[in-house]
Design a protein around this nucleic acid. Structure first.
Lengths: 352, 352
DNA sequence: GCAAAATTTTGAATCGATCCAACATTCGTG
DNA sequence: CACGAATGTTGGATCGATTCAAAATTTTGC
């Protein structure tokens, strides 16, 4: 805009006062004599001074009053993914209440991500730990700012985390179906590690790198075993939590001679894709097949049929995350939030 | 964390090099001898140095590589409002492509807002101009950074803006209904100014402070007049674009002895609330009443019945906004985006 | 072995503010 | 009028880095 940007010192000089006084005019106006204040303000106006540059202020001030929200997904994730959106909703509530700002941090490639995390001007980070979360956590840790991992997919006890009890949550889903009378199951899993999708053996699944996925699977199988199901025969398909791999997973599960009467999906997203797939093939839900999701996203309430699911208190998690950052005092805080079975119309007793 | 935070100078001293060299180790590693680099890095590690503080860097560097997105609504608006979400989706796409970050700026009260805008560390602003937009624009203008107003609700030719042709868009909606044969209309308007909701006269509406609302109304009436409708008799209700006032508006419109067969809603949000209201009362849409919305939010595609609407290219607007900021060269850019009628099942010829 | 060229390192200047101890001025009061 | 208190103003120090011209060192060429 200007040839060279005006700074506070220029204004001070023009008004014939010290820069200290000029600074006071803007940051503590009551301390300077009205007459002088007017003069400085007038001069600032004349020079086209844009007001104290936050960069300068920031350097001096301790805190920024903004928190960073980081993910390894592209930025659009925050606005398009249902889970993220609900969590963000909770985060914004807490930020609105305390007047804190939000910086969205993310990047397409890893290098960008590192840079973006290193250069975010924030008081702390909330990290969405999805696949590849551990790298993100390392990057964030290096900033040595308070940060909290959301949805901890692994068990590093040295960082703040807010997560859920995947094991017992999955158990609730399995028990719900088993109590309805189901005995033939299929599992649509989330990624076990970075290696891609496909059918998975129980052994592989139980030694998965991603603790969240692993615990959910353990939760399923543990309960099913209690109901006398031969868990080693339960087909498991590892999806990428996307449409293509979920559909591939369904083809796999329903190619068996004795297909499942109940599907355990590790995310609502996968479950909703499955419901579409069933409809397309004329497979009745819940009459022919029951399905339970995981997460509790709003979309699950309006699908046809509405989805039975294990709901995470997403908004609450977002709010807690902000609190954890703002109130951080050096002691690690790890919270496990309650999961809740929401029984809707996608589950029913098996026909036979 | 630390008693006192480690800075680059400390590391430099510890490693026995100048701070200039220490700086190079981090920002241009290739320029310093490997041996020295290792030593500095090792020392940094030992001291627990968190890497160059972005605040310091920022002061020196010209640009921040982040853009601010501002609104007078609370932060949750960005994640809960359908219109905002789709626009944000476009904004994030453009930011992802260029590697820019996003800071969300907003505040519950006006004072906070001013402060937040003044202290946002960004290269420019995208301003969501809703009600109260002009104050927001003034605040932003004072920062003397590039900024672009989205959905320009008023006609200040001195600022960048990306908007739509409200007049002709509204005309499309009205023509669609008129051509179906409708002659009795009701209008659910957005706010005309800050003064609250209620029935509005045509005169008041046509002199409204908010140009967007005014132009949409003019667009409706202009076309309707062309079809021989007595526009002075068309009931208009000013809503706050929320549930309560929309329902009040519907009570008003449908209390007339000869109620409308077609409703012109100035936003999809209002239109979708209306559809709910109709269903609750057993009023068939589109058989008894047709309704056209405005905006083209995704929800309109899955309502029952799906909503006929005037769609704004929201994602594209978001993308353009980012470009406008990043490519700003001092020349004002005002873009008018194309609107498009999406005909869906909420409109049909009147029964009689 | 030495001058010239290439590579590294140095340290002062700068970015734009805020803070604060010291100094200056004004005011009230006996 | 003098003195202490109250109120305003000053300018140096600081926040934490980057930059760049100049100085120091190493390498190259002959």
């Amino acid at each position: 805009m200007q040839r060279k940007s005006i700074k506070l010192a220029d204004v001070a000089k023009a008004a014939g006062v010290s820069h200290g006084t000029a600074s006071n005019v803007f940051s503590r106006p009551e301390v300077v004599r009205p007459e002088v204040r007017e003069r400085v303000l007038a001069e600032a106006q004349k020079l086209g001074y844009a007001g104290p540059d936050p960069r300068g202020r920031l350097l001096r001030a301790g805190k920024v009053n903004a928190i960073g929200v980081a993910t390894a997904e592209p930025l659009s994730y925050f606005f398009n993914d249902p889970f993220a959106r609900v969590v963000m909703s909770g985060i914004t509530q807490a930020c609105d209440a305390t007047g804190a700002g939000i910086s969205l941090v993310s990047a397409a490639n890893n290098e960008q991500l590192a840079w973006n995390i290193q250069s975010a001007v924030v008081d702390g980070f909330i990290v969405f730990c999805l696949e590849g979360g551990s790298r993100l956590v390392e990057l964030t840790r290096e900033r040595r700012l308070p940060f909290v991992a959301l949805d901890f997919g692994y068990d590093d006890e040295t960082i703040n985390a807010i997560g859920v009890d995947d094991f017992s949550g999955a158990g609730m889903a399995a028990r719900h179906l088993a109590e309805l009378g189901h005995r033939r199951f299929g599992v649509l899993a989330l990624p076990f590690d970075d290696s891609g999708s496909g059918p998975a053996s129980v052994e592989r699944a139980l030694t998965a790198a991603y603790a969240g996925t692993r615990d959910r699977l353990r939760g399923y199988l543990d309960v099913l075993a209690g109901f006398g199901v031969d868990t080693s025969a339960v087909p498991i398909y590892e999806t990428d939590n996307d449409e293509v791999t979920t559909r591939a997973g369904l083809e796999y599960l329903f190619a068996f001679p004795n297909p499942p009467t109940a599907v355990l999906a590790m995310s609502d997203k996968v479950a909703l894709i499955a419901i579409d797939w069933f409809r397309e093939r004329g497979i009745a839900v819940p009459d022919t097949v029951s399905i339970v999701g995981f997460d509790g996203v709003p979309e699950g309430g309006i699908s046809k049929p509405p989805l039975t699911t294990i709901a995470q208190p997403m908004e609450e998690m977002g709010r807690r995350a902000v609190q954890t950052i703002l109130e951080f005092d050096g002691t690690i805080r790890r919270e496990t939030m309650e999961l809740r079975l929401i029984g809707r119309a996608s589950t029913a007793p098996p026909l036979h």
